[in-house]
Simulated scan of single mutants.
Amino acid sequence: MSDILLVTGASGHFGRRVLDHLMNILDVSPERIVATTRKPAGLTDLALGMSRHALDRLTGQTNS
């Protein structure tokens, strides 16, 4: 399976748990995950190869 998975709110508590579950329990490769958050500085410690982007779902603004 080569689907790309989008995780919104990735720097928050629930988003971090989702990322952990995807990578450590379901063994999803970081290259298949796109992590988004309003606070991109909170994503700097994520696995290499994981795509990280700023996204505010309330305003629709993005910064890649």
Rank of each mutant, 00 (worst) to 15 (best):
M1C: 12
S2T: 15
L55D: 01
L19N: 03
I4L: 15
D27P: 00
D27Q: 11
T59N: 06
F14W: 08
D3F: 13
L58E: 14
M50S: 03
K39S: 12
S2F: 09
L46F: 15
V28M: 06
L46Q: 09
V28H: 04
H21D: 10
D20R: 11
L46V: 03
D3W: 13
S64Y: 10
N63G: 12
L5M: 13
I33K: 05
A35T: 06
S2H: 13
L19D: 05
G15S: 08
K39W: 08
F14D: 13
L22E: 00
D27W: 04
D45F: 11
F14P: 01
P40G: 02
H21W: 11
L43K: 07
D3A: 14
M50W: 04
E31F: 07
T8L: 04
G49W: 02
R38K: 15
N63C: 10
D20V: 00
Q61N: 12
A47F: 03
V18Y: 08
D20M: 05
H13K: 14
S2G: 11
N24E: 10
D56K: 01
D45T: 13
I4P: 07
R57F: 11
G15F: 05
H53E: 13
G49V: 01
A54C: 08
S64N: 12
N63A: 15
D45I: 02
G15R: 04
G42L: 06
A47T: 02
L58Q: 12
A41F: 09
R38P: 01
V7Y: 05
S11T: 08
R52M: 10
S29H: 11
D27A: 09
S51P: 02
T62N: 06
N24R: 11
G60W: 02
G12Y: 06
T44H: 13
D45G: 14
T8K: 02
D3G: 15
T36S: 11
S2N: 15
L46N: 02
D3M: 13
V34M: 08
I25N: 11
S2R: 11
G12A: 04
K39G: 01
T59I: 07
R32D: 10
G42T: 04
F14C: 09
R38E: 08
R57M: 11
G49M: 08
T62C: 11
L43S: 03
L55N: 00
H13L: 14
L6W: 11
L19T: 04
L58I: 10
R32E: 09
L48F: 06
A54Y: 12
R52D: 03
L22A: 03
M1E: 14
S11A: 15
L46K: 03
L43N: 06
T36G: 03
M50D: 00
S11R: 07
V18P: 10
N63M: 11
I33T: 07
A41M: 00
A47K: 12
T44C: 12
L58V: 12
L5G: 01
G42F: 02
D56Y: 01
R38Y: 04
S2C: 08
L22H: 05
T37D: 15
R57K: 00
L5W: 13
D27H: 14
N24H: 13
R32H: 12
L22P: 07
H21R: 13
L46G: 02
N24W: 07
M50C: 10
K39C: 04
V7E: 09
V18S: 08
